[in-house]
């Protein structure tokens, strides 16, 4: 819902285009720059993970002590457990060693290694966000190009109006409303979880059951995200619409439909691809609240549990993993973009 929080600004992608300067020649050079950028971002995530949790004024242990009564001995024990009694430089080195060996510490609430927990909860999140992303992208791009092509028509007005409204809806509230109507009142779909108890994994019934549990969370995420894709695609195609080559295509007698499908849309898709991947970050963020409302056993719900704990090692772990997923997604976007746009490739 947050970037969610970023309004769709045409400037962002205009600029993205301008940024792909025609100086980088070889594929390796391009790949190297992008990979380097992603690595720097990862390093910053790792640093932020450390500084946010140990150096910022809010002492994590004092914070935990605020939330629940604790004796001074317990506080001292917690400090020792987190390694907070050591000097900061030593803490930092320990943290680096741990993070590169995949050791994210032990969850305070679950009493199991954080990496193990994240491993268990990662699958459902990927299933949920992946499905939602595919549906939202397909729907958003299709409606967006329709709306732009008939700019100013009733269809365009409805599409834009719906997008603006959906953009103003907090993800978690839409989830609550859907839960209330279809889970509570109509009882069409289950109100939470991923599988009903007693269903054997691996059977056909299992697949159907998971799909039924997925409907409401997926609809929520699609509804909130597709509007952004729609607006991006619409803006992008509107920009192409006045191009000379479209006049040429029409002049040589192509049907309007063909002009749109073969000439305008492929070009409009280019800037859209980057933004689509950039918004996947928003989708992942949306997973936090959607999974919370529907008790979907994924990383988002784990984050919520870490907040209510408060379970700092777990929160730190989910932060690092979420951020890594998003950075990798963006790297993929950059690479796909190069494949799609021959101008970037050849130049």
């Amino acid at each position: 819902m947050t970037d969610t929080i970023t309004p769709v600004n045409a400037e962002v992608h205009d600029e993205k285009l301008a940024e792909e300067s025609p100086t980088r020649s070889s594929f390796l050079g391009y790949f190297g720059t992008k990979l380097g950028g992603a690595l720097i971002s990862l390093v910053m995530v790792v640093l932020l993970g450390f500084f946010a949790f140990r150096v910022l004024p809010g002492d994590p242990v004092r914070r935990i002590a605020q939330e629940r009564p604790m004796s001074p001995e317990q506080i001292a024990e917690l400090r020792r457990q987190y390694g907070l009694d050591k000097p900061v430089t030593q803490q930092f080195l320990d943290y680096l060693v741990n993070i590169f060996t995949g050791n994210l510490g032990e969850s305070y609430v679950y009493r199991t290694p954080v990496s193990e927990l994240i491993g268990q909860y990662l699958g459902p999140t990927l299933l949920l966000t992946g499905t939602s992303a595919i549906i939202a992208i397909a729907l958003g791009l299709w409606l967006g190009q329709r709306a732009a092509w008939r700019n100013g028509s009733l269809f365009d007005k409805i599409a834009t109006g719906t997008s603006l409204t959906l953009w103003s809806v907090p993800t978690f509230w839409l989830a609550l409303i859907l839960l209330m109507i279809f889970g509570g009142t109509l009882r069409w779909f289950p109100t939470g979880g991923m599988v009903s108890p007693g269903v054997e994994p691996g059977t056909f019934d299992y697949v159907v059951d998971v799909a039924r549990h997925m409907v409401l969370p997926v609809v929520t995420m699609v509804a909130v995200v597709f509007a952004q894709y729609l607006m991006v695609m619409r803006a992008s195609l509107l920009e192409e619409k006045s191009s000379d080559y479209l006049t040429t295509a029409r002049a040589k007698g192509l049907r309007d439909d063909l002009v749109r499908r073969r000439h305008a849309v492929p070009n409009a898709l280019l800037p859209t691809v980057t933004l689509v991947f950039m918004h996947i970050g928003g989708l992942v963020a949306g997973a936090v609240t959607v999974e919370t409302v529907f008790s979907w056993p994924g990383l988002g719900k784990l984050t919520y549990e870490a907040i209510s704990g408060p379970d700092m090692p777990l929160l730190q772990g989910t932060f690092v993993v979420f951020s890594t997923i998003i950075i990798v997604m963006n790297l993929i976007a950059d690479l796909i973009y190069r494949q799609l746009d021959p101008r970037v490739r050849r130049a």
Binding site: T2, D3, I5, V284, V288, M312, L315
Partner: peptide
């Protein structure tokens, strides 16, 4: 720009008072 602001905001508001 890349990092979803909600995830970062959650972290910040969890560690600060």
């Amino acid at each position: 720009l890349v990092l979803p602001s909600l995830v970062l905001a959650i972290v910040l508001s969890s560690v600060l008072s």
